[in-house]
């Protein structure tokens, strides 16, 4: 590349160059003088102040932070009697159920928040978790973030009040098609009864009717390779499956309200 020596010079010299063989002079860019900006003094923090935070890691943890609300997350596959191969991210019921009992027992805990992002899993384990949550005397609020599919549905409705994030989805489909049966004489009757347990639990704990839920379950043309329905955010609310569409802050607000209501009735304490 040819660099004109006049590039950084002034315009006067460029205009005087009349040689036709010389490359055209590059017009120097119009550089406006920048107004002097105030010097940002906050950019450099005092390294002496950061060091103890880095080394000891003590500054970010509030001292004596005690939450009266505990949070339970149901993620990945709900694992039941069979240990799934380790590439699965699982929620194990032997972890969850003692935690729910601990929440019930601990007088410092006043409510429980349930965050769901699950693809389903074992029917028995899922129903066991759902039944245990339903049996809690302390207020519970669930929120479906991401997905609450298959067996996630009874877990989502088991709380006193349920929320769904606007983008979250819930897939409702029959057990026998994508579900798996291991070591069971595969009678349709057995699966039918298994499925009825799920249908019964969901309809008992939400505003959806049995006919409506079964209609969603056996809908054709929604899922590409299966029958069933995908409910996104508001749709789950319209069907009466979930109470409200909302966010974490709304869910926490509702939980605090339920705690206050129960305190007013003299429920706990």
């Amino acid at each position: 590349m040819y660099y004109n020596s006049d590039y950084f010079g002034d315009n006067k010299q460029v205009s005087q160059n009349n040689n036709p063989f010389s490359p055209p002079a590059i017009k120097p860019p119009d550089i406006q003088p920048q107004p002097a900006t105030p010097v940002r003094r906050k950019a450099k923090a005092n390294p002496r102040k950061i060091e103890p935070i880095k080394e000891l890691g003590e500054a970010t943890l509030p001292v004596n932070f005690q939450s009266n609300i505990h949070c339970m997350t149901i993620v990945g596959q709900v694992e039941g009697h069979m240990i799934l191969p380790p590439q699965n991210k699982t929620t194990k019921y032997e972890h969850i159920i003692p935690q729910i009992i601990a929440v019930e027992q601990n007088p410092d805990i006043e409510g429980m928040m349930l965050v769901l992002n699950t693809v389903g899993g074992d029917v028995e384990a899922g129903l066991a978790i759902a039944e245990t949550i339903r049996g809690l005397s302390k207020p519970t609020v669930s929120i479906v973030m991401g997905g609450g599919h298959s067996i996630g549905t009874p877990i989502a409705v088991s709380a006193n009040y349920s929320f769904i994030a606007p983008t979250a989805t819930m897939t409702i489909h029959p057990i026998r098609l994508t579900g798996l049966v291991i070591g069971v004489p595969a009678t349709m009757d057995y699966l039918e009864r298994m499925q009825d347990r799920v249908v019964q639990f969901v309809t008992e704990n939400s505003n959806i009717s049995q006919q409506e839920f079964k209609k969603l379950m056996f809908k054709v043309g929604e899922l590409s390779q299966d029958i069933g329905t995908v409910l996104v955010g508001k749709e789950a609310v319209h069907n009466g499956l979930i109470n409200e569409e909302g966010t974490i802050s709304q869910a926490l607000k509702k939980l605090r309200q339920l705690i206050d209501e129960q305190k007013g009735q003299g429920g706990i304490h």
Partner: peptide, 19 residues
């Protein structure tokens, strides 16, 4: 006596990837 009720393809769940 396990019935797995999930949206995931079953071979994805049961495939052993420990190797």
């Amino acid at each position: 006596m396990d019935v797995i009720y999930t949206t995931y393809p079953i071979d994805m769940i049961l495939e052993d990837k420990t190797q």
